[in-house]
Write a protein that binds this DNA or RNA. Sequence first.
DNA 1: GATTTGACTACTA
DNA 2: GTAGTAGCCAAAT
Length: 107
Amino acid sequence: MDNDNFFERVYKVTRLIPYGRVTSYGAIARFLGAARSARMVGWALNNSHDKDVPAHRVVNRNGVLTGKHHFAGTNLMKDLLESEGIVVVENQVKDFNEVFWDPKDNL
DNA sequence: GATTTGACTACTA
DNA sequence: GTAGTAGCCAAAT
């Protein structure tokens, strides 16, 4: 099943992120019950290369695109976010609190 | 099987 | 408000 692994769970939640919205690693981790495993979320997304996971919509709690360096292009993450209507300035999401989406909102 | 790492978060100075 | 350190859990080597 795709729900057996922690990774798959992260992918599923990340895929639930609506258009023009972003979330934080901690939010996803907490939603999965691994409140203190935010780093695991990042690691899971690292494996999401083969998955259809919008990892560019996941940022740290500060709204900073910490993982942009892991993307193919340096500005790929920023470009993707801006394409969704999200304003990104200096690798940081503007109005992060407004575009922030919590997985709990899906419940 | 033990050690290191890693796209984080929270606390403390 | 900024900077540095500690804690955390799970996978990779």
